[in-house]
Design a protein around this nucleic acid. Structure first.
Length: 293
DNA sequence: GTGTTTGTTATCAA
DNA sequence: CTTGATAACAAACA
């Protein structure tokens, strides 16, 4: 599941290669979550130059030079953005021979999960893969982007806006369980199911505790846990639990540092008790009954 | 065939 | 208006 650290890893990979790159050809293979229409994008994008790659929470934002437009990518659960500048022989002009490809995690590219791809004038290629068809590509103008960011995304971990007074303000008087609150992108942008479970374990808090029931010391522990966890996960290039890969097709290295997610039935690293798993707010939820109060 | 996986949104309720 | 709870979606896999 690409959460903030995984999308950030993809972003850091992409800026190494895509800044200044000019789009040559766009191929849309099978993508229903694309706006405006695929036909419009096929016409609009060629010739556009990429000026920067940004991110808000799990949303990747590609800015186009001398343009009021921004290309948004959301990977949802199984989306991948895989870049390559390996040279391959392309028969006759610009278009990539569908049969030609090179090896990457998940098979040759393009493969059966490739929903769209971009060819750049310098020979680089960017593949948009998605096993399920949840992920989206969206082209928006500046005002639409501002509105999207304002309406859907709160402050991110590791930013000045995500401070203790803010965190306390969004938890007090809240009846929702703490896991639901920290998963809410409007309150904190970037946490998904893995890092929500992990941060609550690190802070020693039961996932189903009501927001308003958290003691001051618990709120302090949790904000530290979230920030440290996200920083470490970025440092290790994210977590691959199912099919996440970075923009070079490589897996994340933080997986081995997980304390509770995916460890049901195994011994807690802290106390040795069995890690338990329940369903909470519709999500698989992992915790240690002994360490989380 | 059944249940499970999760990010996000729609819908409904209070 | 705010807040919260839940279903729905997608496709593969055990």
């Amino acid at each position: 599941m690409p959460e903030l650290p995984e999308v950030e890893t993809v972003r850091l990979d992409l800026i190494k290669h895509l800044i200044g790159a000019q789009i040559d050809v766009v191929k849309i293979i099978d993508l229903k979550n694309i706006t405006p229409s695929a036909i419009f994008l096929l016409d609009f994008l060629p010739g556009q130059e990429i000026s920067s790659v940004r991110r808000k929470g799990k949303l990747l934002i590609i800015d186009l030079k001398n343009s009021d437009y921004h290309l948004l990518f959301h990977l949802k659960m199984t989306g991948q953005l895989i870049f390559t500048n390996k040279k391959i022989k392309i028969a006759g002009g610009h278009s990539l021979d569908e049969g030609s490809s090179y090896k990457a995690v998940g098979g040759e590219l393009p493969n059966k999960h490739t929903r769209a791809y971009f060819l750049f004038t310098n020979g680089a290629r960017l593949f948009f893969n998605d096993l399920r068809k949840f992920a989206y590509i969206k082209l928006v103008n500046r005002d639409e982007l501002t509105e999207i960011l304002l309406n859907n995304y709160g402050p991110e971990p590791l930013t000045p806006e995500f401070n203790l007074p803010y965190f306390k303000s969004i938890l007090k008087n809240r009846k929702r369980v703490i896991k639901a609150l920290i998963l809410d992108q409007k309150l904190i942008a970037g946490l998904g199911n893995i890092y929500a479970d992990e941060s609550l374990f690190l802070a020693g808090i039961k996932p189903w505790k009501e927001g308003k029931a958290l003691k001051s010391i618990e709120v302090e522990k949790l904000i530290v846990a979230i920030n440290e966890l996200i920083a470490e996960a970025i440092k290790y290039r994210g977590t691959t639990f199912r099919n996440y890969v970075d923009a070079e097709g490589k897996k994340g290295n933080f997986t081995t540092f997980l304390k509770v997610y995916g460890r049901e039935g195994q011994a807690c690293f802290n106390c040795g008790a069995k890690i338990l798993k329940i369903k909470l707010v519709g999500r698989g939820t992992h915790y240690c009954a002994n360490c989380q109060k």
